[in-house]
């Protein structure tokens, strides 16, 4: 990372700091201020979109730790979210637990299920591991359907609105703030995790697991730890999703979403916290645009049926992944760094 001239790092701590200049601190504070005052001046629609983005950011950050840092590709992330979502839903709806107690339990439960399905990861990787996580997705959903008495089966489960400190979170703005606080904490934790011993071990495993083992990284425990942390994130996101809609249903965690989370990571840039956030924002906006584009296209060109317009969203979704894989495999964050560098060096950069 290039710094403006006149900034000197005199200690290791300074060199490792995430924010190294006053300017960066100011930008962060402005960003946070804008973020947390959004409910004051945004419409319901923007609040919904932003809340969904926040929830996806939490989930994708988890996937980034698992896939982006540790190299263990998971195509079952929505399944792990379902574990968290349903644990939280069952605790609050069936047992009457408060939301603040159910949320950590949801994360923990998803983490433990993640460890379970991560167990084969010691022996296998690449395509084989992907298949194990795909299987996890389908098995989890099937199990939810089987325990119909607790989960509501195919009927879904109505979940009470979350209550914190005697205050029922009912408005979109309040829920947005809740999600954003958790998302910020999640980002902070994810950003710092990489700079610890654990994070460096993850990266070593990603780059070459055999070499990492030779260097003394315990593969089993670190891989399982990555699964645990990644799935805790997923569980928390699942819980937030379920409480946001006050309803839990297996159709809210389809296999397509698992793919889409991985796509967000690819579009944003693997192995980068900022990239994960970029990816979520871009693809969520695309999703939203596609939902709006359907009726708009059908209205503009009456010759094409509404269904044809709706099917374009499927095509667009695929096309975005194709385009990024071919032309921008390192993700938006890479492009972002290039653009930043361009302006920093201007007029010497041409």
């Amino acid at each position: 990372m290039s710094l403006p001239s006149g900034i000197f790092q005199e200690s290791y701590g300074q060199d490792m700091a995430i924010l190294r200049t006053k300017q960066q601190w100011i930008w962060l504070l402005i960003f946070l201020a804008v973020l947390f005052t959004m409910p004051l001046y945004s419409s319901d629609k923007i609040m919904t979109l932003a809340t969904m983005m926040g929830i996806s950011v939490i989930s994708v950050l988890g996937l980034n730790i698992l896939t982006g840092y540790c190299g263990q590709i998971s195509l079952g992330h929505a399944g792990f979210m379902a574990v968290g979502g349903y644990v939280s839903a069952m605790l609050t709806a069936n047992l009457g637990w408060p939301f603040w107690a159910a949320l950590p339990c949801a994360g923990l439960a998803a983490g433990l299920v993640g460890i379970l399905f991560g167990l084969p990861s010691l022996k296998i990787k690449g395509f084989y591991l992907i298949m194990a996580t795909v299987a996890a997705q389908f098995i989890v959903i099937w199990l939810i359907l089987q325990f119909r008495g607790f989960t509501g089966g195919t009927d879904g489960l109505a979940v009470p609105r979350p209550e914190l400190f005697g205050y029922v979170i009912k408005t979109k703005g309040a829920y947005f703030l809740l999600v954003m606080i958790i998302a910020c904490l999640a980002t902070f934790f994810a950003k710092n995790l990489v700079r610890t011993r654990v994070g460096r071990a993850f990266i070593a495993i990603r780059d070459n697991d055999l070499a990492a083992e030779v260097m003394g990284v315990n593969l089993l425990s670190y891989k399982l730890l990555a699964f645990f942390i990644g799935c805790v994130y997923a569980g928390v996101a699942g819980s937030l999703l379920v409480h946001y809609f006050a309803f839990a249903d297996i159709n809210m965690f389809p296999f397509g979403d698992s793919v889409w989370y991985l796509a967000m990571l690819i579009v944003g840039g693997m192995g980068s916290t900022t990239g994960a956030i970029f990816g979520v924002i871009t693809l969520k906006l695309l999703d939203e645009a596609m939902i709006l584009a359907g009726p708009a296209l059908a209205a503009a060109f009456p010759a094409i049926a509404a269904q044809a317009a709706a099917s374009l969203s499927l095509i667009m979704r695929g096309l975005v992944i194709v385009i990024f894989l071919i032309f921008e495999p390192r993700g938006l964050v890479h492009r972002w760094e290039l653009i930043k560098a361009y302006f920093k060096r201007w007029p010497f950069s041409v």
């Binding site: 319901d44 629609k45 919904t48 969904m52 879904g156 999703l241 809609f245 309803f247 249903d249 159709n251 809210m252 389809p254 939902i291 359907g294 009726p295 509404a306 709706a310 969203s313």
Partner: peptide, 19 residues
């Protein structure tokens, strides 16, 4: 007539409904 494609997913239906 206003419409949105909910893709048979409850969460999409809720979002479109809000919209």
């Amino acid at each position: 007539v206003l419409w949105g494609d909910d893709q048979l997913a409850p969460d999409k239906a809720l979002t479109i409904y809000d919209d």
